[in-house]
């Protein structure tokens, strides 16, 4: 098991290498002079020359890559072109809101979707089941920003229950303000994943309920509720965990939109601003970060399988 984890972590090295190469080439191979691209439409020739010098673009490409990689390995992601701040500093500043929003979203999604899906599978064909399925279809269909604005309008503006926008840190502003501010973004972001995971849970639990060992449990005189909890749900877990993992990976896209709608100063906003301003070092840094997180999540999912299913051993 430890050997497996070690092997997997070792295997991330070449993957991250390929990502790094891609990220490096992204700027160098884009059409035109990268310095001119970075300098923008109104730059003078001197500006461009200065940028080229700063970025080391006059050197051979292999030398450039080696230098860049060397910096990367020391944790230096470069300097943002517009703010002149190190990319690592910018990311560090924005990390907290995004991480916490992702966390609350995962917790909320799992807490709602799995019981909902299980209930639907158990009462298959009933009104509950149809309700869950209807919610799923709706959840898939409503765009994140539409849902966000509807929620703001109803809960914040009309009912005045929750703040409209903004972010409060649980560490500096306290837990209660944090929760009040994070609630709407969390719901907004969760809906599509609840729809996805509830459906997956329903399908998975329904399949498990056909299994012989469920019949065995009933033959023991076990109550239906416990049959569901002790025997069905855990056996249904592996495909559900897979989807949760994929969902987290896909969450990034939703985070960008959600953070814009609710004006949360997180990584999503940083991505958006960097793309709009073509701030390449930031974009590069974020791609590397997200790739790394993605690989890490995949490893965690694979390890989670062994927790749920003793037959899976690495």
């Amino acid at each position: 098991m430890l050997a497996y984890i070690f092997k997997r972590i070792l295997a991330t090295v070449p993957v991250m290498g390929v990502v790094a190469l891609f990220v490096f080439l992204m700027l160098r191979l884009s059409p035109g002079d990268p310095a001119a691209v970075i300098a923008g439409d109104y730059a003078t020739a001197e500006d461009i020359a200065r940028i080229r010098e700063n970025l080391g673009l006059n050197e051979p490409i292999v030398v450039q890559f080696t230098k860049w990689l060397g910096q990367l390995l020391q944790g230096d992601l470069g300097i943002s072109i517009f703010t002149n701040l190190p990319v690592t500093t910018l990311i560090a500043q924005r990390l907290e809101p995004t991480l916490l929003l992702t966390l609350t979203t995962i917790v909320f999604t799992v807490a709602v979707a799995i019981p909902l899906g299980t209930l639907a599978a158990w009462k298959q064909g009933s009104l509950i089941d149809r309700g869950v399925m209807l919610f799923s279809v709706a959840g898939f269909s409503i765009p994140v920003f539409v849902l966000g604005y509807i929620l703001i309008y109803v809960l914040s503006i009309q009912l005045k229950l929750l703040p409209v926008q903004g972010y409060k840190s649980p560490f500096t502003d306290g837990l209660w303000p944090f929760l009040r501010h994070i609630t709407l973004p969390t719901i907004t972001l969760s809906v599509i994943y609840i729809a996805l995971i509830a459906r997956m849970t329903r399908a998975s639990v329904m399949e498990v309920l056909q299994e012989d060992y469920v019949r065995t449990a009933r033959a023991k005189g076990q109550s239906e509720f416990k049959v569901l909890m002790k025997h069905a749900v855990r056996n249904a877990a592996v495909p559900i965990v897979t989807v949760i993992g994929l969902g987290i990976a896909l969450l990034i896209g939703g985070v960008v939109v959600t953070e814009s709608v609710y004006n949360i100063p997180g990584l999503g906003r940083l991505v958006l601003d960097a793309v709009l301003k073509r701030d390449y070092p930031i974009i590069q840094g974020l791609i590397l970060l997200f790739s790394f997180i993605y690989i890490l999540i995949n490893l965690l999912i694979d390890l989670a399988y062994t927790v749920f299913d003793p037959r899976i051993r690495y």
Binding site: E211, D212, T216, R218, A219, G221, H231, R234, P310, R311
Partner: peptide
């Protein structure tokens, strides 16, 4: 009554037991 007064064993011992318990 199930399990106490009447009990049952099944054909497939491979699938009749819960694999994760």
């Amino acid at each position: 009554l199930r399990g106490v007064k009447m009990a049952m064993i099944f054909q497939e011992p491979m699938t009749a037991l819960n694999p994760v318990m």
